[in-house]
């Protein structure tokens, strides 16, 4: 019996990888006089998927994150699961 789970991915550049979008945004925030030290910009991805249980959904999420949703060369990701 499968049910629907919601996977939420946060994908971002690995620390140490240059993030021009984050730097430009940091500079503008600093210009706006916020004492911002660093900005990193990534992606937020939400996926609805049928799975046997939460562990199964999370395992599929790990697989999707590695195979498509992130580029393991320069990005890392986190995935969380919740039943819908």
């Amino acid at each position: 019996m499968t049910r629907t789970y919601q996977l939420t991915f946060l994908v971002g550049l690995k620390s140490g990888i240059l993030d021009p979008a984050g730097q430009a945004t940091r500079n503008v925030l600093q210009h706006m006089e916020y004492a911002v030290q660093d900005v990193r910009i990534g992606k937020w991805i939400r996926v609805a998927i049928q799975a046997d249980n939460a562990e199964h959904a999370l395992a599929l999420g790990q697989e999707m994150g590695q195979r498509l949703l992130s580029n393991p060369v320069m990005e890392s990701f986190e995935v969380t699961v919740k039943a819908l």
């Binding site: 430009a24 945004t25 210009h31």
Partner: peptide
């Protein structure tokens, strides 16, 4: 502007 970073026009909108 600003490579369309964040959102198109968003960073330029805060330019001096």
């Amino acid at each position: 502007s600003y490579g369309d970073y964040l959102r198109s026009g968003a960073l330029a909108a805060a330019a001096p």
